[in-house]
Design a protein around this nucleic acid. Sequence first.
DNA 1: CTTGTTGGTCAACGCTTGTTGGCAACGTTA
DNA 2: TAACGTTGCCAACAAGCGTTGACCAACAAG
Lengths: 212, 212
Amino acid sequence: MDAQKSAEGNARADADAAGNVAAAGAAGRHRRSEATRAAILEAARDRFAADGYERATIRAIARDAGIDPSMVMRYYGNKEGLFAAASEIDLRLPDLSGTPREEAGVRLVRHFLDRWEGDETLNALLRVSVTNAVGGERLQAVFRDQVAPVVAAVCPDPAQAPTRAALLASQVLGMALTRYVLKLPPAAALGHEEIVAWLAPSVQRYLTAEQP
Amino acid sequence: MDAQKSAEGNARADADAAGNVAAAGAAGRHRRSEATRAAILEAARDRFAADGYERATIRAIARDAGIDPSMVMRYYGNKEGLFAAASEIDLRLPDLSGTPREEAGVRLVRHFLDRWEGDETLNALLRVSVTNAVGGERLQAVFRDQVAPVVAAVCPDPAQAPTRAALLASQVLGMALTRYVLKLPPAAALGHEEIVAWLAPSVQRYLTAEQP
DNA sequence: CTTGTTGGTCAACGCTTGTTGGCAACGTTA
DNA sequence: TAACGTTGCCAACAAGCGTTGACCAACAAG
């Protein structure tokens, strides 16, 4: 019974994340709950991003969403299911195969900055990943499935893509950590283009330089 | 009463951290508890490093140390006091003023690597800092009080030291995050000297390059 | 031998957490 | 109108948490 309920919750959440907008009108049934589901997801992302996994309680998330905690359970099964639904991410990385190889660093750093500040999901995933195994695996999957392929297109030997993607991760996640999570004052004070100017050459080297 | 007890616990812990070895023999009283205190601190560091602040429970730490949870309270006042005692850190950064400026990057990256793998305290502080405010402030203080002064000695304009130290932090903490916390396979597989070869040029530039 | 201090255990407290099941209101369908 | 699935709230559960205070054994001081 538990598994069934949980599975149903996840399945619906997955459908939402996949951009299932038509479903509301397509099926002849009442789908009035879509707004509630979205409110829960948004509140969950904010809380996970601000507090991490353990301190982001279902009660607090429900309060933010303006509904009862039991609704969260009905829609997402359990806390892990909620996090799984709230942390689905598409980095929307640009295709770099059509642009000059030397611009890869600048474009990627700028893209990561924009992405990070326009979507609480990334912060949530980063904060949670540090203390929660499921989050860690998901973040790992992001770099394996989304970042590494893009890196493979610009680096000398595609076989080195995972390693170079990890080096990219170390610098990009490190800046996200110091700036958005730890909020070191000097890191938080930097402007976008300052960060790009400092970090891009490093990233560029991690992607395209010959093995040192 | 709480404050008094807590203060006492911290005071003793501080004395320990300052390397108070002579006290055991100097004072004529029995200081049989020093071993227990040390066992608690070691267990606490391991647990904080492995689980983060919330999931590292006092009960689990006490179990690891082989004593009763209430002992932790008596010696360190409360959980925050325990963490404060367990996360005191001296990076023991080398003095770079006597060495060639171009070696700063290599020496610092190598030093951070050695330090991180030889002491669970650093991992504990990093993991905790992501979800705990006190931890975050302490990590911030480390870079302000220990890293920035060393950076000031090698960078062109000492006024830029905080910013350059933050850039250094973004790369060094980023590597620690991907390698020791998230354990991205490609990052965990790198050898010491490989990491030095990749990261040192970046760090070197953050420290000594003209503003980009 | 008594007395006081120290190192330590034990059982319990109040609180918060994730999670569950019952029940009421509403809109749809027949 | 009657039946029904959906949406939602409420009250409660068991478990785990940090924390507390009473109590006990060992040992040094008088």
